[in-house]
Nucleic acid binder design. Structure first.
Ligand SMILES: NC(=O)c1ccc[n+]([C@@H]2O[C@H](COP(=O)([O-])OP(=O)(O)OC[C@H]3O[C@@H](n4cnc5c(N)ncnc54)[C@H](O)[C@@H]3O)[C@@H](O)[C@H]2O)c1
Ligand SMILES: NC(=O)c1ccc[n+]([C@@H]2O[C@H](COP(=O)([O-])OP(=O)(O)OC[C@H]3O[C@@H](n4cnc5c(N)ncnc54)[C@H](O)[C@@H]3O)[C@@H](O)[C@H]2O)c1
Lengths: 223, 223
DNA sequence: TAGAAATCGAGAAAAATTTATCGATAAAAA
DNA sequence: TTTTTATCGATAAATTTTTCTCGATTTCTA
């Protein structure tokens, strides 16, 4: 584990790093200057060696007996992900989820910005949300090309997902953040990140079911 | 891998099963009666033995040379998760995300139902979304107890997450589906499922960055 | 009805990920 | 100044998850 980040980073690590980031930001707000993996581990219920390994991927080095400078660590994670260079994205499907994503201010922290939205419903086309005008779907491909946008967000119903993905890819999009519960077929070189909320929900409910069956449920709950 | 499901199921399996489910539902709609792991594997880009192993957890048995009955397989997954018994939940934080979740019809398929919503903003309290009236936050704990609800959804800003979680837990909630990018401390016996959208986004953007750096980007994209 | 082809289930092997260990080092305490 | 303590980085061990292998079974074809 050398200082320089390598290019074979475990996906679980990639998912934990933003968690550390949020946590560290909160820590900084509370005025903390240094933090150790032991300390982080207590709050996040993770093992210190794992945290150390994760953080090392960003290229930071800690100090024995002390830990890391919080500010430096935050910067290290930001640089690792490149959150200072903004990734611009198009979003398709301006329904409930699409609007939530468009309105959300929190993504700017992650160097992510939705710069245009598309829909095929004339009711929403022309409307503006968070300063972003909703355009007609048929402009998607050409605008992708023209504006050199490489990331697309799919927030349409599942049955439209493949069609929309195809239009995006035709426009040169190589990264798709997909909220529709549908399988998208893409050519080599296109990365699809499925945001399957139902999967998270299912895991929760199943764990709960197993907890209940094991009889280890909290006393006070079963009245 | 016996017929009966065991109680030590890998989480990746738990996350893949709803994916198979969606896929199989779509397959059934198109009139398909049987399907093999080889076939599923092609469409979902997964290895057949893994799919076989995943499906075996639900207790189903396939037939050599044939595969599985699609309908039977769907039912097997439903039974495994217990999607026929409805899990009722309370949601707190009726903003963009909260409303998207309340309005979403798709969760009924997963035996999940939001039966009440809470907020602390008088602007939203009293309003109704998808037949669900928004109640004042101070009624949360007592109503949890009274209605014997065990699942809570947090869709408030991050700074309110811990406070809301505490109120839920006081009311007897043992499963929390958390959309706020905040760490929630809970006592033993409470399961927290963090739905960290920023993590998914970060993974996508980082993969894209690595793809670009590796020079393996699609020709047609770099004009 | 015999042989070929496809697929399953089970278990082994490989790979990835997490957890544990240990010497080195910096800070604090004696 | 010396000792003690906490923590790091690196590496090793353990665990989990994925991938591979192979004999058994069922269907299809000839
Ligand atoms: N809302 C949720 O909480 C939630 C949860 C899990 C998954 N999802 C998934 O996210 C996606 C969006 O959900 P939603 O609740 O916002 O749905 P929605 O019905 O509110 O919005 C869908 C939008 O897509 C537009 N659309 C439909 N077909 C289109 C097409 N071919 N091209 C462009 N736009 C098209 C519609 O006009 C509409 O504006 C769905 O696939 C849904 O299954 C949503
Ligand atoms: N919208 C998105 O796309 C998105 C993406 C990622 C994460 N999130 C997270 O999901 C959460 C909700 O996001 P949103 O966009 O819906 O925010 P929002 O601001 O639209 O809604 C937040 C709601 O919570 C209510 N609220 C605030 N404090 C409360 C309290 N103490 N008790 C009860 N209710 C309270 C507010 O009145 C408001 O109705 C946030 O934590 C956000 O970071 C949202």
């Amino acid at each position: 584990m050398k200082g320089k980040p390598d290019y074979n980073i475990p996906e679980p690590t990639l998912r934990r790093l933003p968690r550390y980031y949020n946590y560290l930001k909160a820590l900084l707000n509370r005025g903390r200057e240094v933090v150790s993996c032991t300390h982080i581990g207590k709050d996040l219920e993770l093992d210190p060696p794992q945290i150390r390994k994760d953080l090392a991927y960003t290229g930071i080095r800690g100090l024995p007996k002390v830990g890391y400078q919080v500010e430096e660590l935050i910067k290290s994670i930001e640089d690792f992900f490149g959150w200072n260079n903004i990734d611009e994205a198009f979003l398709v499907g301006v329904g409930n989820m699409g609007r939530a994503l468009i309105d959300y201010k929190g993504f700017s922290r992650y160097g992510f910005k939705i710069i245009a939205a598309f829909d095929n419903d004339s009711e929403v086309i022309g409307k503006t949300f968070n300063g972003i005008e909703v355009l007609a779907l048929n402009k998607l491909t050409s605008l992708c090309k023209r504006m050199n946008v490489h990331i697309g967000v799919i927030a349409t119903p599942d049955h439209a997902a493949q069609e929309v993905a195809d239009m995006m890819i035709a426009g040169g999009i190589i990264g798709i953040w997909n909220f529709a519960p549908a399988e998208i077929r893409t050519p080599e070189g296109v990365i699809v990140q499925n945001e399957n909320l139902a999967a998270g929900l299912s895991v929760l409910c199943k764990k709960l079911q197993m907890l209940k069956q094991s009889g280890k449920i909290r006393q006070e709950v079963i009245e």
